[in-house]
Nucleic acid binder design. Structure first.
Length: 289
RNA sequence: GCCGCAAUAGCUCAGUUGGUAGAGCAAGGGACUGAAAAUCCCUGUGUCCUUGGUUCAAUUCCGAGUUGCGGCA
C-alpha cells in the first residue's frame, strides 16, 4: 500500500448567494451527518461584524461547531491565503475527530482556493509596496506594469487600480509574470457541491426584507459601536451594510436612502456571487425553501 | 371654467433647425489566483401620451383630446 491509493477526504460544500438559506441548510445537514461547519465568508471572520453580516448566533448554530468565524479583529487584514491555511487545518481537525467537514459560505474566491484548483502565489501580501503604489496614478501604474510584465499590462483595465497593483506586486515578489504566477493545482478533497438559490425576484425580495430585519435588530447601533471602537477603517466602510449606515450617520444620506442603497448593493453583490458559482459545473443546485 | 407649462427607456431627464432617438441611475451578462461583501469590463427598439392636419416624410410644426403640475377665477 502506498499513499497513491489513499482516497481523498470527503467534504461537503454549500454555496449560494447571500440570503439563499445556506446557514440553516448547513446546520441541518451537520446535525444529520455528524458534521461541523467551516464558514467560507470573508466578513464573518471579523469579530463584532454580527448583525450586518447575518452571522449565525448561538441559537442558529444549534450546538453545531462553526469554524472560521470571529477569528480576527476588524483592523487585521484577512486574506484568501490565510483562509486557505486556517480552513485546511480546521478540516484536518474535523476529520481526525471522525466528523464530516461542511464548508458553507458565499465568498467565491475562498472556494476556488480551498476546494477547487487555484494555486495562489506563495508570498505574504506586500503591504508596503501596495501603499507606495497606491499613490501613483493609474496611468503611471500601467506604465510601470508594462515594463515588468507586458502581457499583463495589455490585459489590464486602466481603471482597475487594484488589479494593476496586484500584478506589479506579484512580479516583484515572485519574478513571475501574471500568466505564469496563476497556477492550477490538483484538488485535495473529494467535494460534494450543493448550491442554494432562488428565482431572482424571490431572492431580491428576501434580501430587501432581511435588511429591514437587520435594522430592527440593531444594525445602526452596531455600526455606531464599530465606528466608536475602531474608527473608519477599511474593513468597516468597505462592508455592505456598515458602508451605507455610516453614510447615514454622517448625514450624507437619509435613513431611507441609506437602506435603499444597502438593499441595492446587496442585490448587486448576490449577482456577483452567482457569477462565481455558475462557473462551477459540479454544483448540484437545489431550490431553497 | 379660463390661461400657461409638461407628457421620450423601469426612474430622472436630454435631443431631433421635420429623415423614427441618447445620457445618468436601475436592470441583465461577464471577469477575478493572498484586499474579494473588494475591484473592474460589456449590454440601450422605446406605440418619443392619443388623434386629426400640413408634408415625399411628423416623436419634432399646427389643431383637438387625455392626464399631470402651476396660476387666475
Amino acid at each position: 500500500m502506498t499513499e497513491n491509493f489513499v482516497t481523498k477526504p470527503k467534504i461537503i460544500a454549500i454555496v449560494g448567494p447571500t440570503a439563499s438559506g445556506k446557514t440553516a441548510y448547513a446546520v441541518e445537514l451537520a446535525k444529520k451527518l455528524n458534521g461541523e461547519i467551516i464558514s467560507a465568508d470573508s466578513r464573518l471572520v471579523y469579530r463584532g461584524f454580527d448583525i450586518g453580516t447575518a452571522k449565525p448566533d448561538v441559537e442558529e448554530r444549534q450546538g453545531i461547531k462553526h469554524h472560521l468565524i470571529d477569528v480576527v479583529e476588524p483592523e487585521e487584514d484577512y486574506s484568501a491565503g490565510l483562509y486557505e491555511k486556517h480552513a485546511k487545518k480546521a478540516i484536518e481537525d474535523i476529520l481526525n475527530r471522525g466528523k464530516v467537514p461542511i464548508v458553507a459560505g458565499g465568498t467565491g474566491l475562498y472556494f476556488r482556493v480551498l476546494l477547487e484548483n487555484w494555486d495562489l502565489p506563495e508570498f505574504d501580501p506586500d503591504v508596503e509596496l501596495r501603499a507606495e503604489l497606491q499613490k501613483l496614478s493609474n496611468l503611471q501604474l500601467l506604465d510601470r506594469l508594462r515594463e515588468l510584465d507586458e502581457a499583463a499590462a495589455l490585459e489590464a483595465q486602466l481603471a482597475d487600480k487594484k488589479k494593476i497593483i496586484r500584478a506589479i506586486e506579484i512580479i516583484k515578489n515572485t519574478g513571475l509574470p501574471l500568466n505564469e504566477a496563476r497556477r492550477l493545482k490538483a484538488p485535495e478533497y473529494d467535494v460534494e457541491w450543493i448550491g442554494l438559490n432562488l428565482p431572482r425576484e424571490d431572492l431580491y425580495e428576501k434580501i430587501n426584507k432581511r435588511v429591514d430585519i437587520m435594522v430592527e435588530n440593531g444594525l445602526i447601533e452596531e455600526t455606531q459601536k464599530l465606528l466608536n471602537k475602531h474608527g473608519r477603517i477599511k474593513n468597516i466602510i468597505e462592508t455592505i451594510g456598515y458602508k451605507e449606515i455610516t453614510a447615514y450617520l454622517d448625514g450624507t444620506l437619509t435613513l431611507e436612502e441609506a437602506l435603499e442603497k444597502l438593499k441595492q448593493n446587496t442585490r448587486n453583490y448576490a449577482k456577483r456571487q452567482l457569477t462565481w458559482f455558475n462557473k462551477n459545473e459540479e454544483i448540484n443546485w437545489l431550490v431553497a425553501k
